[in-house]
Write a protein that binds this DNA or RNA. Structure first.
Length: 877
RNA sequence: GGGCGGUUAGCUCAGUCGGUUAGAGCGUCUGCCUUACAAGCAGAAUGUCGGGGGUUCGAGUCCCUCAUCGCCCACCA
């Protein structure tokens, strides 16, 4: 007798089990010589706690990793976290603000010290969370994007790219977040449509006699205009090109230039050119050698290049004041509503300004070409495939990557400037004095690198690169990357580029892109909406297994997962089912029950077949990363086959007075329980391991986590057929009982007529006791001959017909109505099928199996129709 | 402006290579506290597969078109 708590309470054992796995080194790759299975975690940001997106991401990885571990592959899941430059710095700056401080009050060193502490705190929480949800990561190999090794990797990459001419510095117009105080990469800008206005402004000809009308959505930038552009073939303005116009409110005159960029159809066909504050204007400015006038301070206010009345004002304020001034001076014509796209910072959502500054860039084209080739060669595969388009499109239109950030938290750019001779030194090691003039007056670049500049090295930097470590040798390239689609640009494609560039090989062959987790209204989960679900809350309430199983069960390759707290009941209920089934089996087991497995009977063969069919379904699904299909297969097997049928059937023997019989039943239940636990383990690791440990030693592997996943099918598949027929017959009687509301304690007479050809007669006869038990029959006859159908409904199955004598308990009118409906349906089907079968095209073109199959079902339907009609007569038509 | 995806039961979603009368979970309804589980058991009902057209012997599935919702990309001031 093995004791189990009456109720499933995951809190009682999940932590204990996790500790056990960890202590016994189960998360470390085994020594097997098989090809390793390797996953690197998408490192969570050390900015806060894990949300449900992480829950999904890590649950799926854990399922994969556990599945492969059970296949006997040396399995490694490398964990780690990301320093998340802007995000983390923002967190700390917000904290400071609450204390009435700014980062400048602290100074760089003190600020960094404080940020490290915040990092430590968050890191601890994140690791605890990952462990709570059961991630089987090898914590001995945990990394952080700013640890010593990864910092070395970052430097190596920066310097070597610089040496190859793929990193350069220059003054360009970049996206600048005035709130974060830093430049952003193009893809860190989120465009959103906002209501705006298109203003029309007069720019008088310098020589008088007219004016040029210019349309703009940003009148406040006119102080930085250095030209007005028209289309070279626009007859309206041909005479003006080369002349000048007066720039309102400034007293400056600016030239009219011709550039094909201008759209003659839009607005007036004349565009004001502000090279320092618009990316297009910047391009035009470059082509025409126009001066650039910067109007903004780094914190987003108008600077001394603007007239005094707007200096120090924000952009929005300046716009209003400028429009007002234009109106007063008579330059303003009108303004019409024009919704347009405005860029926002992806971290703080402030409007991003195009801002002229000195930044570092990576030349992306050469890297992107290799990454594209890798896809074309089939070196990488996306699951689902559709994301390949996204990947390809981005690479084909790639632009240089601005990697410098005006932040403190991050990898400092490894470049030094000599104050004496002005020499710039790019170096792998820190520089104390100028190699050119020997001066000690060298100063490191103030800026840090974009966070992704360390993330893109993750698959090999975590394994020890640039050192040639054993891990790197053994575990690179990794097997698969599991991530969400929102970072294909930021991360996935860049990792592929870095892998190819520095390792000469793609970092992973398979890329599984999963969905985003949203709330039931389809909204992104976010702090501000307050609609987020904390995975830990779910773990608290339902357990980590419920979390993992539910997410897998609900994931699909189709679309985003819409979820609320109640969704997790699916997993909770399933875990509960496993618990109770196990409790039932184990509670009656003692050592006597643990001998050899008795010879299989038909039901044992049947469940064995079901189990292996499920195992094969899981294998196929996992191969294609169809987690939901795998989870469904496991669920259906255990609940619908094992619990609903096998356990119920076994009860006849289980409760048999003959002890030997009972023992045989228990032994087989144990056998299938053990195997079922192995089947389910990747999806519900805690509960299965907990129960597994309770199984008698003689029937199990030491631990479930590295026990073999069920694979080889020992049972004959054909063995399942009669069981299926019996199930069908039992259901037929149950349906009849239920439909006629015959109470369970009312026994009824049942007759089964088997078709001689079905081969079921013998089986049904043998199984009469079981059949009777399941349907609570008062009398059950099985025959191949004619059956007296008086007072009975008959239900036709595949190869047999069941008669349930329900005469007294029936509402004849209602029943007749039902039958008529059924007859109609069947007649329609027969008609349709007959028409098709008289069609020569069909007969000649359809595959023979299809025709045969349809013919069979047509025959079946015709038989059923006859019986139905007969039944109808019975009900007093 | 370009591209992608969704539209299937009351709700959330599966649906493989086009192949019989389209499935699951939740919810609803009926009957059961049957000696593992009421977080359970046994049943039932519910569909113009967004609209229209086409291809095909056969379409939820392929093509065209329209509608609608969403996402991504894009420098139209």
């Amino acid at each position: 007798m093995i004791e189990m708590e009456k109720t499933y309470n995951p809190r009682d054992f999940e932590e204990k089990i996790y500790r056990l796995w960890e202590e016994r080194g189960k998360f470390r790759p085994s020594d097997s010589s098989k090809k390793p299975f390797v996953v690197v975690i998408p490192p969570p940001n050390v900015t806060g706690i894990l949300h449900m997106g992480h829950g999904l991401n890590n649950s799926l990885q854990d399922i994969l990793v556990r599945y492969h571990r059970m296949l006997g592959e040396p399995t490694l899941w490398v964990p780690g976290t990301d320093h998340a430059g802007i995000a983390t710095q923002n967190v700390v700056e917000r904290q400071l603000k609450k204390e009435g401080l700014t980062k400048d009050d602290l100074g760089r060193d003190a600020f960094l010290e404080r940020t490290w502490k915040v990092k430590e705190k968050h890191h601890e929480v994140i690791v605890r969370q990952l462990k709570k949800i059961g991630c089987s990561c090898d914590w001995s190999r945990e990394r952080f994007t700013m640890d010593d090794g990864l910092s070395r990797a970052v430097r190596e990459v920066f310097v070597s790219l610089y040496e190859r001419g793929l990193i350069y510095r220059g003054e360009y117009l970049v996206n600048y977040c005035t709130s974060c105080g830093t430049a952003l990469a193009d893809d860190e800008v989120e465009h959103e449509e906002e209501p705006g206005k298109l203003y029309r402004i007069r720019y008088p000809y310098s020589e008088g006699g007219g004016e040029l009308v210019v349309a703009t959505t940003r009148p406040e930038t006119l102080y930085g205009d250095t030209a007005v552009a028209v289309h070279p073939e626009d007859p309206r303005y041909a005479a003006l090109v080369g002349k000048t116009v007066e720039l309102p409110l400034t007293g400056r005159s600016i030239p009219v230039i011709a550039d094909a960029y201008v759209d003659r159809e839009f607005g007036s066909g004349a565009v004001k050119i502000t090279p320092a504050h618009d990316p297009n204007d910047w391009e035009i400015g470059c082509r025409h050698g126009l001066p650039r006038i910067n109007l903004l301070t780094p914190d987003g206010r108008l600077n001394e290049n603007a007239p005094a009345f707007v200096q120090g004002k924000t952009v929005a304020e300046a716009r209003e004041l400028t429009v007002e001034a234009l109106k007063q001076k008579g330059f303003f014509i009108d303004a019409v509503d024009l919704p347009h796209q405005v860029g926002h910072c992806y971290r703080c959502h402030t409007i991003v300004e195009p801002y002229m500054s000195n930044q570092w860039f990576v030349k992306m084209k050469p890297l992107a070409q290799k990454a594209l080739a890798a896809w074309e060669n089939g070196d990488i595969r996306f699951f689902p495939k559709k994301w390949e388009n996204t990947y390809r499109h981005w690479l084909e239109n790639i632009r240089d990557w601005c990697i410098s950030r005006q932040l403190w938290w991050g990898h400092r750019i490894p470049v030094w400037y000599c104050r004496e001779c002005g020499k710039m030194i790019v170096s792998r090691t820190d520089i104390e004095s100028c190699p050119e003039c020997g001066s000690g007056e060298v100063k490191q670049d103030e800026d840090v690198l974009d966070t992704w500049f360390s993330s893109w090295l993750w698959p090999f930097s975590t394994l020890g690169w640039p050192e040639k470590t054993a891990d790197l040798q053994r575990f690179y390239p990794t097997s698969v990357l599991v991530t969400a689609y929102d970072i294909i640009f930021f991360w996935v494609s860049r990792m592929i580029m870095a892998g190819l560039e520095f390792m000469g090989e793609v970092p992973f062959k398979d890329i599984y892109i999963h969905q985003l987790v949203r709330d039931k209204q389809g909204r992104k989960m976010s702090k501000s909406l307050g609609n987020g679900i904390d995975p830990l809350e779910i773990v608290e309430e339902y357990g980590a297994d419920a979390l993992k199983f539910t997410l897998a069960y609900m994931s699909s390759q189709g679309q985003d997962i819409l979820i609320d707290k109640d969704s997790f009941k699916i997993g909770a209920k399933f875990a509960n089912k496993i618990w109770n089934a196990s409790r039932y089996i184990l509670s009656s087991v003692d050592d006597d029950d643990c001998g050899d497995v008795p010879e299989f009977g038909v039901y044992d063969n049947w469940i064995e077949t079901r189990l292996h069919t499920a195992a094969e379904a899981v294998a196929a699904a996992m191969h294609d990363y169809k987690f939901n299909e795998a989870a469904h297969a496991v669920y259906e097997y255990f609940w619908n086959d094992f619990c609903d049928w096998y356990i119920e059937i076994s009860k006849l023997e289980f409760y048999d007075a003959d002890e030997a019989k009972a023992r045989r039943a228990k032994r087989k239940l144990l056998y299938f329980m053990e195997k079922s636990l192995r089947l389910m383990h990747p999806f519900l690791p805690f509960i299965t391991e907990e129960i597994y440990a309770k199984l008698p030693d003689s029937v199990r592997y030491p631990m479930l986590i590295d026990a073999p996943f069920p694979s080889e099918c020992e049972a004959a598949v054909g063995a399942a057929a009669p069981v299926t027929a019996l199930q069908e017959a039992i259901r037929a009687v149950r349906t009849a009982r239920s439909e006629f509301t015959i109470p369970p304690d009312t026994k009824i007479r049942v007759a089964v007529r088997c078709d001689a050809a079905s081969g079921l007669t013998e089986f049904f006869k043998n199984e009469q006791p079981l059949f009777s038990h399941f349907v609570k029959a008062s009398d059950l006859t099985v025959t191949e001959g004619a059956v007296d159908s008086k007072g009975a409904v008959s239900i036709i199955g595949n190869g047999f017909e069941v008669f349930v004598y329900i005469r007294d308990a029936v509402d004849a009118v209602k029943e007749a109505e039902k039958m008529r409906k059924e007859i109609e349906k069947t007649e329609a089907f027969i008609e349709r099928t007959k028409v098709r079968h008289s069609n020569e095209n069909y007969l000649s073109k359809a595959p023979r199996q299809v025709i045969e199959k349809e013919k069979a079902s047509l025959e079946e339907a015709e038989i059923r129709l006859r019986k139905l009609k007969k039944n109808l007569e019975l009900f007093g038509e």
